[in-house]
Write a protein that binds this DNA or RNA. Structure first.
Length: 327
DNA sequence: TGTATAACCTGATCGC
DNA sequence: TGCGATCAGGTTATAC
């Protein structure tokens, strides 16, 4: 299931194989995959025909390719891709049969000089999506603003308007423990966040790139229960949690991401191997590798949470006091 | 204003 | 064998 490491693997593939190339044809096989496109499928097609892609970028699980029509111009728009639950971006030879669940097909030219002599340069970019939670759409690039969730201090000067609400992601080098602690434990208004810590780290407007798998993994490393009120976390807790999030994302990235089935692959159709390294997620009934307790699976937000009941104990109910509300 | 939840979607799996 | 129910989960809209 695509989270930050999987999106980054795909971004690297796009950057290597697609940037610098021009779109020759656009074929929307299933209009549901461009449902977020303003103006509908026709607008998507007319925006991309003849466009030349620049370097691929990403924030959290959103990735995008800025594009231009005039080689001398600066990109003002980007084609944004979100993989959702089951999206894949494949670069394939046009002679290969269409994959099942093919939704969008872009044929690309031979690319710039750096692609010359590359005998196996795939000619088609194919967006494949079984569950149709993902999609593609064109969005104007806007400056990242101070005060926006991922705004000041980011290394991305421009971001698609449609992704402007997404906060700085886990691997952004400019996160620091103090900023993270405040984002985790306080609302923008300054009031305490009383909601559970897992809900908060899944909120892409607080920190982006975390999904159900890596949330459970990071909480296991930090020995935190998913329902512990965020406002009760100390700076030590939030510091350990941030380190755990960064560490689990980096290690997953080194192994090409997490694949449980064929639903996540890189642009070459290859699976990642991080599923073998998971400590909590998907390990129901197996021993906790830290304390020997038995990992349990519990319903949470309409999905599942995995934890060790011994070293990630359920928080005791605490009466809310005036001191908690002090800003 | 902040939080919780339903809806979207398809294939695999399970029980009857 | 075939059918229906259930489950998986990221994002957004809606309800509270």
């Amino acid at each position: 299931m695509p989270e930050l490491p999987e999106a980054e693997v795909v971004r690297r593939g796009l950057d290597r194989w697609v940037s610098g190339r021009r779109v020759e044809t656009v074929d929307i096989v299933d209009a549901r995959s461009v449902r977020r496109q303003e103006g509908g499928p026709a607008a998507f097609e007319s925006a991309l025909l003849g466009a030349r892609f620049a370097a691929a970028a990403r924030r959290g699980k959103f990735l995008w390719l800025p594009f231009v029509r005039d080689a001398a111009a600066e990109p003002r728009d980007a084609v944004v891709t979100h993989l959702g639950m089951s999206g894949q971006v494949l670069l394939q030879d046009p002679a290969m049969p269409d994959p099942r669940h093919l939704k969008i097909r872009l044929t690309l030219d031979g690319g710039p000089a750096r692609h010359e002599g590359t005998s196996d340069l795939p000619g088609e970019l194919r967006f494949v999506d079984q569950r149709i939670f993902g999609g593609m759409f064109v969005s104007p690039l806007v400056p990242t603003l101070d005060g926006a969730p991922g705004g000041a201090g980011t290394d991305l000067p421009l971001i698609p308007a449609a992704a402007g609400h997404i906060a700085r992601d886990v691997l952004d080098p400019l996160w620091d423990p103090s900023t993270f602690h405040r984002a985790l434990t306080r609302l923008p208004s300054g009031r305490p966040r009383t909601t559970g810590v897992k809900r908060v780290i899944l909120d892409q407007a607080v920190i982006s790139g975390v999904g159900n798998i890596y949330a459970d993994e990071a909480l296991w490393y930090a020995s935190l229960h998913y329902d512990r009120p965020a406002s009760t976390l100390t700076r030590t807790h939030s510091g350990i949690l941030l380190e755990a999030l960064i560490d689990v994302m980096r290690r997953s990235l080194e192994e090409g991401g997490t694949s449980f089935d064929s639903l996540y692959v890189n642009v070459n159709g290859e699976s990642g191997y991080f599923a073998r390294s998971l400590q909590a997620y998907g390990r129901e009934g197996r021993d906790c590798l830290r304390c020997g307790g038995r990992i349990v699976r519990e319903p949470f937000m309409g999905r599942s949470s995995y934890r060790c009941p011994r070293c990630q104990r359920r928080p005791r109910l605490k009466k809310f006091t005036a001191a908690d509300a002090r800003v």
